[in-house]
């Protein structure tokens, strides 16, 4: 039987994080960027849960922390979507490449 160790979880988390990072940097749509950010947060949470389970099985620190992270990212996604809506009302567009009013 194949042994599923912590490195497998960490590899999955790395793939997830890389997908998220790519999405955050490369997508034009603000909604897609938000989703990519969620993907990166999920990768981090997976790492914490897996390492907690394998390194310190008697304590629940990683799991508890992950609960916190999920709550915070839920709030964060609410705020992000609200921002996207506000921007859309102003400019009739959610393309990040057009949002360059801070250009120096």
């Amino acid at each position: 039987m194949m042994q599923v160790g912590p490195s497998a979880f960490m590899a999955l988390a790395a793939v997830l994080f890389s997908l998220g990072l790519y999405g955050a940097v490369a997508r034009k749509s603000a909604v897609m960027v938000l989703m990519s950010l969620e993907l990166m947060a999920v990768a981090v949470s997976l790492n914490m849960v897996a390492l907690s389970r394998f390194v310190t099985p008697t304590e629940m620190t990683g799991q508890v922390f992950t609960i916190f992270t999920m709550v915070v990212s839920a709030a964060e996604i609410g705020l992000g979507l609200a921002l996207v809506l506000a921007i859309y009302r102003q400019t009739r567009s959610i393309e990040l490449t057009r949002m360059d009013t801070l250009k120096g």
């Binding site: 955050a24 940097v25 490369a26 990040l96 490449t97 949002m99 360059d100 250009k103 120096g104």
Partner: peptide
Amino acid sequence: TLRKIQVGRVQTYQRYIL
């Protein structure tokens, strides 16, 4: 010269950070 890197797009800054 320096103002050229201030493009105002968030994703460009992300690339710099990356």
